[in-house]
């Protein structure tokens, strides 16, 4: 279970560029929930991800995983609970290292790294088997440099690396936004499969309204650093994109402004 309690975060505090990224945000994610996150530009979606993963620390407020306050832990210590896929396909993998070496690093998520061999034949078999699930032939290219893969392939690998050690929380930060439609569809399908099979507690930021409604079992909408709308599974099932935009307008008093928005 993941909880955010009264979390606030300012950028450039005390300067003319001061910006509220999160203001008194509260969120409780129950185990196994798959939450999609939407919101206008600068609503605080990415900051929310960064606060949970530990890239940033909240100015005030608490982040709890399984009841333990972790807001002061650095990112590398939180990673044992949190898997993450970034928007940029280049961000989640090391390009000058091989596929199996990348997977070996993910395999050691949150564990102490010592002097034992990174890639062993036993692990190689495990990687082969896991890569097969992706269905894009990466299992036959274990020793290829990741830099040689396409954006879609790298993102699929990132997704596997973020999930195959079964972290308690999976953060997906617009992880299909930089891909062409066919590849985005592949990654979306894989995400759905993996999250369902492993019952991962997931937060997924997306600009695709249709995707936000179709995927997952809860939807939250953010605006100006706050969570302004929280739609549970039973209501979400019958939701339409126009209803969603209407609700946003009603609550925030303005149109959803997102220059990358995809209505689906």
């Amino acid at each position: 279970m993941l909880e955010l309690k009264n979390v606030s975060k300012l950028f450039n505090p005390g300067t003319p560029d001061e910006k509220v990224a999160l203001m008194n945000a509260n969120l409780t994610c129950n185990s196994g929930e798959f939450i999609t996150v939407i919101g206008s530009n600068g609503a605080g979606k990415s900051t929310l991800m960064n606060i949970i993963s530990g890239v940033m620390k909240p100015d005030i407020g608490e982040v709890r995983i399984e009841g333990n306050a972790i807001q002061q832990l650095p990112e590398y210590e939180r990673s044992r609970w949190i898997g993450r896929v970034f928007q940029d396909p280049m961000a989640g993998t090391a390009p000058r290292m091989s596929i199996e070496e990348n997977l070996a690093m993910a395999y050691k998520r949150g564990q102490k790294r010592g002097f034992s061999l990174g890639v062993t034949s036993a692990k190689r078999m495990l990687f082969h088997e896991q890569l097969q699930r992706l269905g894009i032939g990466l299992e036959n290219r274990l020793s290829a440099k990741v830099g040689l893969l396409s954006g879609g392939e790298r993102q699929a690998l990132s997704l596997l690396m973020a999930t195959f050690t079964k972290p308690q929380i999976l953060l997906l930060d617009e992880h299909t936004a930089a891909l062409d439609p066919a590849r985005a569809e592949l990654i979306t399908r894989l995400t759905e499969e993996i999250v369902r099979e492993m019952k991962l507690t997931t937060l997924m930021v997306t600009h695709n309204m249709e995707q936000a409604i179709r995927l997952g079992n809860r939807l939250i909408m953010m605006d100006k650093g706050k969570i302004i709308l929280d739609i549970p599974h039973d209501r979400k099932k019958n939701l339409t994109v126009s209803q969603l935009l209407g609700e946003f307008q009603q609550i925030s008093g303005q149109q959803l402004a997102d220059d990358r928005i995809v209505l689906g």
């Binding site: 044992r80 961000a91 090391a94 690093m105 050691k108 949150g110 564990q111 690396m161």
Partner: peptide
């Protein structure tokens, strides 16, 4: 591997702990 990843993609290896 972690050492090599530090020079290759430090953001990634931090997110892996």
């Amino acid at each position: 591997l972690a050492l090599r990843a530090t020079g290759d993609n430090s953001k990634m290896i931090r997110s892996l702990g």
